[in-house]
Amino acid sequence: MYLNIIKFGEALIESRSLFAEAAWLTLKLTAISIFIAIFIGLFFALLKISNIKVLEWIANFYIFIVRGTPLIVQIFVFYYGLTEIAMISGFWSATLGLAFHNGAYIAEIFRGSIQSIGKGQNEAGRSLGMNRSQTMKRIILPQAFRRALPPLGNQFIIGLKDSSLAAFIGLTEIFGAATTMGANTFDYMTWLLVSAVYYLILVFLLTLLVSFVEKKMAASD
């Protein structure tokens, strides 16, 4: 099996509208699921540092489940489970599955970064008469979020690539488009490599975005 460069180039160009649409779907899946996952992650991170045993258990149980089972299983459970309860599209099953999954990792990232902010910051806020939630929102979280950005960026990239698993519940995102074309043309290699090019571009853009935000937030250094 060898790769014909010219054939590959032609495939890349000819399929551009199909893959543009697929890339758009990948982007939507990733962006929406990560957006939701950030809130899930923040919520469970706050449970974990709440010092209330029951809440900590709930958070630990959630993380235990997510980390202990494969993402593909989670996506299928969401797909078959949710479509059973409510009329929900494959897109939303995949999005929610990915959000549920990434949320656990993001929770651990946030927990670590919140706990890395010295307790002096909390004491300074409290000694000025700010209450717990004001201190958390105005003093701790902005600093914690900044520290969380590098690992968060990493998690976003993992999330983007993991969205390829949505192909298995019938979504024609980048990987789905590639396998469809591969099946149609009996030439999987070419189309998988085409998909790789799209993933590389998206990951590259995401990396730029994250480092842009990191630089912006470094103003106080």
Binding site: G118, G120, Q121, E123, A124, G125, R126, S127, L128, G129, M130, R138, I139, P142, Q143, R146, S220
Partner: peptide, 26 residues
């Protein structure tokens, strides 16, 4: 605590806020 101000050994200024923002925060 609003009536009792406190100054710490390690200052504990808010590093993500400017000097002015530190002072007007509370």
């Amino acid at each position: 605590r609003q009536k009792v101000g406190m100054v710490f050994q390690h200052f504990n200024l808010f590093p993500h806020k400017t000097v002015l923002e530190n002072v007007i925060e509370a």
